[in-house]
C-alpha cells in the first residue's frame, strides 16, 4: 500500500491560529491587525481630503460630521492603533538591530502600558473638547 503523508495545510490565515500561543505572538497579531487598519485608514483619509478640492462648503460639511460622537470614538480607536503599532514598531526596530534583545518582553509590556495610558488620555482630551 502506498503511504501518502497528509500535506501541510497552508491557508492564507493559518498564521492567525491562536491556539497555545504566547505573548510575543499576540504582539505580532496586534501589529498586523493595526497595520491593516491603518493602511485602510490612510486611503480613506486621502479620499476624504478630496473634499478640500471640491470647495469650502463640502469640506466644512465633513468637519461637522467628523465632530459627531461616533466619529470621535473612531478617532480614539485610530489613536490607540497608532500608539500600539508605533510603540511596538520601536521595539521591533531596536531588537532587529540587536539592541535590548534580552529585554524584548519588558519592552512589549511597556509599549502596552504606554498605549493604554496615552489612549485614555487622548480619549479624555477628545471628548472634553466636545463639551
Amino acid at each position: 500500500m502506498e503511504v501518502k503523508p497528509k500535506p501541510v495545510q497552508r491557508k492564507p490565515l493559518e498564521w492567525f491560529n491562536l491556539k497555545g500561543k504566547r505573548v510575543g505572538f499576540w504582539a505580532y497579531v496586534v501589529m498586523r491587525l493595526s497595520a491593516v487598519g491603518l493602511v485602510l485608514y490612510l486611503f480613506l483619509h486621502l479620499v476624504i481630503l478630496s473634499q478640500l478640492a471640491v470647495g469650502p462648503a463640502a469640506w466644512d460639511n465633513f468637519v461637522a460630521l467628523a465632530k459627531s460622537p461616533a466619529v470621535l470614538l473612531l478617532d480614539v480607536v485610530l489613536i490607540i492603533g497608532i500608539l500600539a503599532h508605533g510603540l511596538n514598531g520601536i521595539r521591533l526596530t531596536l531588537i532587529g538591530f540587536g539592541l535590548g534583545v534580552p529585554r524584548q518582553k519588558l519592552m512589549l509590556w511597556i509599549g502596552l502600558i504606554l498605549t493604554l495610558v496615552f489612549g485614555v488620555l487622548s480619549a479624555l482630551a477628545i471628548f472634553a473638547e466636545t463639551k
Binding site: K21, G24, Y28, V101, P102
Partner: peptide
Amino acid sequence: HSSFECTEACPYEVYPGE
C-alpha cells in the same frame, strides 16, 4: 516577525528568536 514563539517552544535553551 519577532513573535519569539520559537524561543518559547525550544526545550533546550537555544533561544533561536534572540
